[in-house]
Simulated scan of single mutants.
Amino acid sequence: MGRVIAVANQKGGVAKTTTVASLGAAFVLRGLRVLLVDLDPQSSLTFSLGVDPDVVDHSISDVIRGEVLLSAARLRTSEGMDLVPSTIDLLAAEAMLLPAPQREFVVRRGLEEVLGAYDVVLLDCSPSLGLLTLNALAAADEVLVPLQCEMLSHRGVGQLLDTVADVHRLLNPRLRVRGLLPTMYDKRSVHARAVLADVKRRYRVPVLNPIPRSVKFAEAPSMGTTIVATSPSSSGARAYFRIADGLLRAWRFGGRKVAPARPSRGAHSYGPPSAAEPEDTAGAL
């Protein structure tokens, strides 16, 4: 049965799509069967993996409307992941869900048909805390929260953690926070290091090793692929391999699951980061 991970943050531009695509590619190279689901009406994941949303036969919108099974909407990407693409029609599909009974569980029910065929399912959430993100959280075993290492970029993380806690309590008791994933990190920047230290103090959840800032991330989608394929030896690709390997170790060896936690000012659960390189917590969750 596949492990379902929602990659969520209501703020845009924090590398949610990059994280889903790069982790998916890393998992495939580790021998896993991987499904990616684009739950963003902007179709960023679909575009970045070389799929034109305007010409796909079916998308996650059709699944949500009950017109096709999720298996019928899957495409195979060049790197070996399966993808359920998104189109702009997802906006209308989300609106259609509003009056529907059990509206938070539509994505979960769609995934049930295919979970046995995958080791990992990654859900790329839209930059909002709307119904699509709630569906992802209701379907997931874990949530991974990318956040940019800038002071204003993590102001909404507390709200997201509150939402995760509510979903855990009301809709999905198996949901856990896997961790916060700092992205676009420049360890030479005093500001970036200060933000990382503040994040570690503020939230009682694991903070994974940061993903470094790199122009290679911007180049890969133009070729319809990921940094793992275009620049496998780059610092960015190596960082995602470390995150993927840490997750695999945690799952394989029964690492502790971290319960949803509300933000806590002044919490020093993980200590201050090194000015040079924060500790690797990915394999200890």
Rank of each mutant, 00 (worst) to 15 (best):
M96L: 01
D245T: 03
G66F: 00
L175P: 01
M151G: 00
V143N: 06
L171N: 11
L134C: 06
G24F: 02
A267L: 09
I227P: 01
G271Q: 05
D54V: 08
I243F: 04
L175Y: 04
D62S: 07
Q10T: 12
R30L: 12
R65H: 11
V68R: 15
S233E: 14
L98S: 09
R108W: 00
C125Q: 04
V55Q: 06
E79Q: 13
I211H: 00
T230C: 07
G12S: 13
A259D: 14
C125S: 10
K200R: 15
G246V: 07
P210W: 15
V164E: 06
I60Q: 02
H154N: 08
M96T: 01
A73V: 04
F253H: 11
V34I: 14
D245R: 00
D38R: 00
W251Q: 08
P272A: 13
S264A: 15
F47T: 11
A72R: 11
A250Q: 12
L111M: 08
S222F: 04
V157W: 14
G31A: 12
G12A: 13
W251M: 10
L134P: 03
P272F: 07
D62Y: 02
L152T: 12
E113M: 00
V228Q: 08
A276C: 00
N172R: 04
L175S: 09
L91S: 11
D141P: 09
F27A: 08
R188N: 14
C125D: 00
A220H: 07
A282H: 05
L144F: 07
R109D: 04
D52Q: 03
A282N: 09
G50W: 05
R74W: 13
L39G: 06
A267T: 06
G158D: 02
T225A: 10
L75N: 09
S269D: 15
S269Y: 13
H168S: 12
V177W: 05
H58Q: 09
G50M: 02
G24C: 05
A15Q: 01
D166Q: 15
F217W: 12
A26M: 07
I243G: 08
A267W: 05
S86Y: 01
H268Q: 14
S214V: 13
F27R: 09
T133C: 02
R169S: 15
P278V: 06
K216P: 05
V68Q: 10
K11V: 06
R74L: 15
G271P: 06
G130K: 06
V121G: 07
I88V: 14
A282R: 02
E142H: 10
A259M: 11
A239C: 13
T281C: 01
Y185I: 10
H58S: 11
V177R: 03
A93I: 07
E94I: 01
G116K: 15
D124W: 03
E104I: 02
L147W: 08
L147P: 03
I64T: 07
L208P: 04
A244N: 10
L32T: 08
S126F: 00
T133W: 01
E142W: 03
Y185V: 13
L181M: 10
R213A: 13
H168A: 14
E219V: 01
T46F: 08
P53Q: 01
E219P: 12
R242D: 09
A261E: 14
V195Q: 05
S22W: 08
G236P: 02
L122A: 06
S43I: 10
V143I: 13
E79K: 08
R252H: 04
L171W: 14
L129R: 13
